[in-house]
Design a protein around this nucleic acid. Structure first.
Lengths: 232, 232
DNA sequence: TTAGGGTCTTGATAAAGATCAAGCGAGGAA
DNA sequence: TTCCTCGCTTGATCTTTATCAAGACCCTAA
């Protein structure tokens, strides 16, 4: 681990309220590993032996069935993933792969379970983290069931613009075919959806997005905090 | 509350590990209410003032957006719902309505939050409950993104048959239009999907389902515990 | 008993989305 | 530089799903 990095991790909401001796014990058993791009870190169905913390680059969570594959989420540093599987001591429900060269901390799940059973601060933080994750998936589920693919794209762009400070322009920071899979459509249909949104004040050139008429886009997208506010 | 009922609630996994004095304090502030059918118990967007426990009948959780509506889940007794909103002290993400005449306990969210902050046993139970809920929604999300509507129906029938003891016949116990909404399709398409499955050993007459060739159905449905096992 | 309302089913049609095939264009390797 | 690869786009076509309309069925209330 790099100097100062452990302090940054200690400040993460999930770990900040732990007793210092428990934090130290947990991270004494940690492995820090570097992975090349496109490496499968975990495979769905495998036992959840480790809780993962992404330090650098980002990680894609995806699911497969019957030779089909779908991107479920991307995890950006510094954040954990697969907390629920660790807690339930169940199999991973999703696979994870690195997108670029990535550094990840592996925390033995057994240690995590042992510690949260006695450390109240840690237990509280886990509760908040899980509640947040749960609500995120519920929002994704509503997005998918209630909206068409063009509507999902429109709202995705509004969310990203807001996260980038409502500048009216930002970088997608994700390959289009992955974005398509995340949004529940094919790459071909994403291209067409982008063209449709050209008529509502959206211009996309490569990975550069420009929102020229946010009002028009919002009138089409009809965003609601109950689906689109990540903090809600 | 009826005699013995409180003891049954005390045995629920979510409450069993609480300190007795905390359980008593929590339920001193409880309201038991009876509701007629088709009553909206909570509306998405409202503040989560109460944690709900369904005692009798069942409750439908649904979401709306832009004049569209979708059934997200049904809650059968005895179980709680809207735990995550209570904990986050955030707005409900889903609405809930009674399907039949129902009895529900309302526990003030503020009391729940106060108690889980100090009661370790309760906190542990909440962690397990939330992890379970989270994994359930992830499974639903995979179901929706990776499968066609006929595949979703086929797997739904296999799950229900299994829950009914693999008798090969069971009652749907849900209106078809609600089932359609839950599975992410229209009522018309559910009818057609049923006809498609007639060719794979499924007969549905009214609400009575008969699986005449489970092997054939399973070969079509390709169930996997990573989507279809509710306990996994 | 009949009338009315709701659900469910069916058929015809429309829309949304997926698939297939071809070509473009940026970036990397020889 | 040229060639190759890969991601992206576009058009044509097909499949899946939704919508609209009509009729069947069932339950309930007058």
């Amino acid at each position: 681990m790099r100097p100062g990095e452990i302090d940054e991790i200690r400040k993460l909401p999930l770990f900040a309220a732990m007793l210092p001796e428990n934090f130290d014990a947990l991270f004494r058993g940690a492995y820090v590993q570097s992975f090349p791009p496109q490496i499968e870190l975990i495979r769905e169905g495998d036992p959840a032996d480790f809780l993962h913390v992404v330090l650098e680059s980002s990680v894609e969570l995806f699911a497969t069935w019957n030779n089909r594959e779908s991107t479920m989420a991307t995890v950006a540093p510094i954040a954990t993933f697969i907390l629920a599987a660790t807690i339930k001591n169940g199999p991973y429900l999703m696979s994870a792969r690195t997108l670029e060269k990535a550094r990840v901390i592996l925390l033995p799940s057994a240690d995590v379970r042992k510690i949260f059973a006695t450390d109240t601060g840690f237990a509280q933080a886990i509760i908040l983290d899980l509640a947040q994750c749960y609500r995120s998936v519920v929002k994704s589920h509503k997005d998918l069931k209630l909206r068409t693919s063009v509507e999902r794209l429109a709202n995705y762009l509004l969310r990203k613009d807001q996260q980038a400070g409502e500048q009216g322009h930002f970088d997608l920071r994700i390959e289009k075919r992955r974005l398509a899979s995340y949004l529940g459509m094919t790459a071909e249909n994403l291209s067409r959806a982008i063209r449709t949104l050209n008529g509502y004040g959206v211009e996309i050139d490569g990975s550069q997005v420009r929102i020229t008429d946010r009002k028009d886009l919002a009138a089409f997208a009809k965003p609601t905090p109950l689906i689109d506010d990540p903090k809600c």
